[in-house]
Nucleic acid binder design. Structure first.
Lengths: 218, 218
DNA sequence: CGGCGGGATTTGTGATCACATGACCGGATG
DNA sequence: CATCCGGTCATGTGATCACAAATCCCGCCG
């Protein structure tokens, strides 16, 4: 009963714990789980058709990245962030992403800028449709596409870890946000890239990254 | 045989996977394991008197933090960093630790500075004794003591993650370093703290953090 | 003498189970 | 009617086992 039957080819022949990890990770990062929601190992295992063991490994991995919170008794929930924590994570985003953008700037040629503009129109569409999850997903795609050009994998990984920690909270925040104006800061980022304007780029990225929390402090 | 015997009180009654995790973590961070060294789940379990299950969880957790490298077949080794990776991690240290020091500055009173000076004399002693592991340990204690004052737990956690990734490599680097001069940059850090000189503090921290890699690039 | 093949062994993966503990829900009591 | 106490149930932890695959090692062939 080790492998239920293995019909022909499974999803991708990736290890079970990795499939579970990736599925949960994107769910959390995209804000598909509300802050404070509880998960159970048996529940996860049941949902993905695996036993507790891979579910546990996936959960441990996510907890190590700060994407999940483990109570002292081992109960696993998605974290509920305090305001100070949110501000700190926003400061981290600013620190890391300004540096990533700055490093990407000299390598940003026209094809990249075109791609960013395409993604940005998708972002605008999600905003107009009030699709919070879609907005978060395309917004992160915009940033990741730019930062990939920085050729700094460790730095990008850290930035993604921060996104992961903010995922559930971002959803909650944007859910209460009533705004349909397109992402102005993304336009500034693209303009600065075109102009090769590094100070402008740094400022635009910093504004884009920290604006989301402004409605929190207000 | 779930609990071998539980003599009276064990080490601390902490969960087994957590004990294993912490033990391995400090070993790696202090550079007690050389880069590229291989570990086995059964070996870890045997060493700590537990089964494979807690060993696996500890390893997964450390791998998620970048402290261990898992090959595609699941073999687990401590990472061998490329030069680009080392430079990137050093840049991350600079970014994060400059910010942490800056945030700690307004909260640094005399008791803290005294403590830093005490720790720094220990650092100097380790340097003179050519004790690489002791040097790394006390050096990190110096930095952590300062950054704790920043009241920024997420940021400090990220900095520790970077230390963890650099652990084995740091040991290898300092092992080939023939230097017995005391840590000059630490003195500059302390002086800047006393003077309340933020720009000087930022510069001193940046120098201290990036100097170690200079012998690499040279 | 060097490369190669094949079998023995090591090693990670995942399922299952026993157990302890913490959570939850009910009723009894003040 | 609120509160506290009881048990039942859900849940995480860790051990053990079966299995597959990767690795290692040694002898064989060119």
């Amino acid at each position: 009963m080790n492998q239920p039957v293995r019909p022909a080819q499974e999803t991708a022949s990736a290890p079970a714990h990795d499939r579970v990890y990736r599925a949960l990770r994107t769910r959390i990062m995209h804000g598909e789980i509300t802050p404070g929601a509880a998960l159970t190992l048996r529940g996860i295992g049941g949902e993905f058709g695996v036993s507790m063991t891979p579910a546990r490994e996936a959960v441990r991995r996510l907890a190590a990245e700060g994407a999940l919170f483990l109570s002292s008794s081992g109960r696993v929930t998605t974290p509920e962030l305090t305001n100070e924590r949110i501000e700190e994570l926003a400061a981290l985003r600013a620190l890391l992403e300004v540096e990533l953008a700055s490093r990407a700037l000299p390598r940003a040629h026209m094809a990249l800028i075109d791609r960013l503009q395409t993604i940005n129109s998708n972002v605008a569409e999600m905003v107009s449709k009030r699709d919070a999850v879609g907005y978060i997903r395309t917004n992160l795609e915009f940033h990741r596409t730019l930062y990939l050009r920085a050729q700094a994998p460790a730095m990008l990984a850290m930035a993604e870890t921060v996104w992961l920690q903010l995922g559930p909270t971002m959803r909650a925040l944007y859910g209460r946000l009533r705004r349909t104006d397109p992402p102005q800061n993304h336009r500034l980022i693209i303009a600065a890239l075109k102009a090769g304007d590094e100070p402008g780029l740094r400022l635009a990225v910093r504004s884009d990254v920290t604006q989301g929390l402004r409605l929190l402090a207000g």
